[in-house]
Simulated scan of single mutants.
Amino acid sequence: MKQDKKEKRNNILYSVLGLVLGIAMCGIGIYGMILNRIESQEYKNATDKREVIAVVESCREIDNSDDKDKNKKNSRSVKYRTKLAFEVDGKSYEGEETYNQKVYVGDKVKVEVYRTSKGSYKLRPYNNLVNFVFYCVAIPLGFIIAIASVYSIRLIVKKE
Results as ranks from 00 to 15, higher is better:
Q3I: 05
K5G: 06
K6Q: 15
E7C: 08
K8G: 09
R9I: 07
N11I: 01
N11F: 00
N11E: 12
L13N: 01
L13D: 01
Y14C: 01
G18S: 03
L19K: 03
L21P: 00
I23V: 09
M25E: 04
C26W: 04
C26N: 03
I28F: 15
I28L: 10
M33W: 06
M33I: 10
N36Q: 08
I38P: 02
E39M: 07
S40H: 06
Q41K: 11
Q41V: 11
E42G: 10
V52T: 11
V52P: 00
V52F: 07
I53F: 02
A54Y: 04
A54H: 05
V55Q: 15
V55D: 09
E57R: 10
S58Q: 05
S65N: 14
D66A: 12
K68R: 15
K68P: 04
K68S: 06
D69S: 15
K72L: 15
K73W: 09
N74G: 11
N74W: 05
N74M: 14
Y80I: 02
Y80C: 10
Y80N: 08
K83A: 01
K83V: 02
L84F: 05
L84T: 03
L84P: 00
A85M: 12
F86V: 06
E87Y: 11
V88Y: 08
D89W: 02
G90I: 00
G90C: 01
K91E: 12
K91W: 04
S92G: 13
E94Q: 15
G95D: 05
G95Q: 03
E96P: 03
E97A: 06
T98Q: 06
Y99W: 07
Y99L: 12
N100G: 12
N100R: 13
N100K: 08
Y104N: 11
V105F: 10
V105M: 03
D107W: 01
K108D: 07
K108A: 08
R115M: 06
R115N: 12
T116Y: 14
T116R: 10
K118Y: 05
G119N: 08
S120L: 01
Y121W: 11
L123E: 05
L123W: 10
L123C: 07
Y126Q: 08
N127R: 11
N127Y: 04
N127D: 12
N128S: 06
N128F: 10
V130A: 15
F132G: 01
F132T: 12
F132A: 15
V133H: 01
V133F: 15
Y135E: 13
C136D: 04
C136E: 03
V137E: 04
A138K: 00
I139P: 04
L141M: 14
F143V: 15
F143Y: 04
F143G: 09
F143M: 14
I145P: 00
I145H: 01
A148W: 02
A148P: 00
A148M: 13
S149I: 01
V150S: 02
V150N: 03
I153F: 04
R154I: 13
L155E: 14
K159I: 02
E160S: 02
